[in-house]
Design a protein around this nucleic acid. Structure first.
Lengths: 174, 174
DNA sequence: CTAAATTAATTCACCAGTGAAATATGAGCT
DNA sequence: AGCTCATATTTCACTGGTGAATTAATTTAG
């Protein structure tokens, strides 16, 4: 696989050339967007690769982590869909897989019987606790050379971007 | 679909709680990573949504854009795989789709007959030129409130991150 | 100069994720 | 109550993407 640096160099040149043919292109913003997508995609791949040996994929892991992070260790498919950005269809599959591995339980809700309550099991908690620590060195290494100010700035800019994207999504349907 | 801001708030709290149970977690880095992945994913969705009406998906579009940005408008499946981070299998499918729509041509290479040369057609160029401009307003809007310094910083930090990820990928196989 | 190893693209079988429709429960209205 | 509308989850059919094996051409080693 090509190094990210090569892909970035190629993208920089490519956008430069395209902008000469299509002059009103927002060049800086296009570059930032491509950069963000490339780095995000690479991060995604790295996570997936780290999880594969444990027989779990990124969305399954994210779902499990949300449950783990909850004070009561439980949620519903609908809520998990919102926070994982997964469709309900896929959440059914994820829940099936995690139930089969004994990491969560799934049962009907008492209050509203349309709902299903999903709860992390003790085995699920142990799984997370065993899985996480080996991830830490690589997570830290990714931000090597980032000063405290860099981290604050990066966080601030990503959050601003998120706020802008939220507004863009809401504008079309007022 | 939940707003990104809600997902982020939830993630901030969740990581806060998890870090109290698992104390040696790199909290700031974990937050930045989740932020990056969430924003990246949302951007991805936005692009996909923008392209859908034109009957083209993100990888097809990216492939076409690389060809468009080349001085000679041509490349090979292998090279396109490297720069799009797609597997060769998928590139075959992408090329099939673009050929069927008449946006590219595919023929054997003169020098090395194992290779295939892929070239953008005039129709492909027109397609890109019609597709791009309507994308610009939303790309610009995503960076609303970014000062010039913010853009420079964001670019610098993403590139540093990319360099770190390159090193992480190379280290395991010395 | 041939034989083995390497490289490029494709095909095939499978996993992950999505949209539309089905099922079932709950809430509101008269 | 009964009827309609909304909500929550699941099922089904399909798209997008991946790994392993296949085919074909080129390079390298003996």
């Amino acid at each position: 696989m090509a190094r990210l640096a090569d892909c970035i160099a190629m993208m920089d040149e490519g956008i430069g050339r395209v902008s000469q043919v299509i002059p009103d292109m927002p060049v800086a913003e296009a570059r930032l967007t491509r950069l963000l997508l490339m780095v995000g995609h690479t991060f995604d791949e790295a996570v997936e690769q780290e999880l594969r040996p444990h027989g779990i994929n990124h969305s399954d892991f994210l779902t499990l982590m949300i449950l783990y992070s909850r004070p009561d260790g439980s949620s519903t498919p609908g809520e998990l869909c919102e926070y994982t950005s997964q469709g309900a269809t896929n959440m059914t599959r994820i829940a099936n897989a995690l139930v089969k591995r004994g990491l969560i339980t799934r049962g009907p809700s008492e209050e509203d019987r349309r709902r299903v309550v999903i709860r992390i099991t003790p085995a699920g908690r142990r799984f997370v606790q065993k899985l996480l620590p080996p991830l830490f060195p690589r997570v830290s290494a990714a931000y090597a050379g980032f000063s405290e100010a860099d981290k604050r700035n990066f966080s601030r800019l990503l959050r601003k971007l998120a706020a802008n994207l939220d507004r863009l999504d809401e504008a079309p349907t007022p």
